[in-house]
Design a protein around this nucleic acid. Structure first.
Lengths: 140, 140
DNA sequence: TTACTTGCAAACGTTTTGCACGATT
DNA sequence: AATCGTGCAAAACGTTTGCAAGTAA
């Protein structure tokens, strides 16, 4: 997903393309790991001096509303964001460096159906996340 | 898991058994849905008048440290707690009434191995949660 | 030109901390 | 008797809101 499509989506939904928004989008889209608001702020200020933390919050809010980014849930906190997955993908997170990747290959249908039948639930959604060490961090 | 075993675990770890702790444990252990600190406070005060919210926070901290309770991650927030699962179980959550249940029957090994091999990760843990409607809420 | 966006300061709700008193062991 | 636990008040923290000035369309 390239930057331009993020900008297009923002504009298509009536949001203006400002320097601050371009810069925040660049930071998030290029980050290998999920970033919380303060980290976005710190990473973006070099690209956009004078940027305020409030603007980061408001931009994150809009990006999330447009499903361009997604909140990531981790034991250490749930206020970090990542670009949304393309289609049906799940998260693979490195516990050492924080690197985040998406993967496909979701064969959960049988499991979900079994649980639904046993418990009488109708399942609408599932969350699956894998935690471990990436190749780089295993070497160290 | 009965109340007594919670009390035993607390004492075995050097924590004293006070009225406040007993009452908080009772509230959480008997709740059908995950409770946040304020909800624990409101549900527990009838059992223990004079209880302070601070004590709730401090008790939750200890119960989590002893793995008696666990934080639940949901789109609406991640500050609610549930008794920890017995062994390897995953969460099934009703989006209407909030009811929380654990289920077993986790056949994720193949999927996890495939992803690990493809991406070069060593996987240490996985999170799986199902969201839907429980039988009661489907009828409404 | 109009409406949206920004940064600042202040407000807000949640969580944590310091402390003297009280309770458990 | 010694230590741990409690509630209160205050502080700290992350996030949200009001507003006047600035900017994109």
């Amino acid at each position: 997903m390239n930057l331009q499509s993020w900008f297009d989506t923002l504009q298509a939904n009536g949001y203006r393309l400002t320097e601050a928004r371009r810069a925040v989008v660049k930071s998030i889209a290029s980050a290998p790991a999920a970033l919380n608001p303060l980290q976005v702020y710190d990473q973006t200020r070099p690209l956009c001096p004078g940027l305020g933390l409030v603007t980061v919050y408001r931009t994150l809010e809009k990006l999330e509303e447009l499903s361009l980014i997604q909140r990531v849930h981790q034991p250490g906190g749930c206020n970090a964001y990542l670009p949304s997955p393309q289609g049906h993908q799940h998260l693979l997170l490195c516990r050492s460096c924080g690197k985040a990747e998406y993967f496909e290959g979701d064969n959960l249908e049988e499991l979900v159906n079994t649980v639904a039948a046993q418990r009488g639930y109708s399942i609408q959604e599932h969350w699956l996340q894998l935690f471990g060490l990436c190749a780089d961090c295993q070497r160290k």
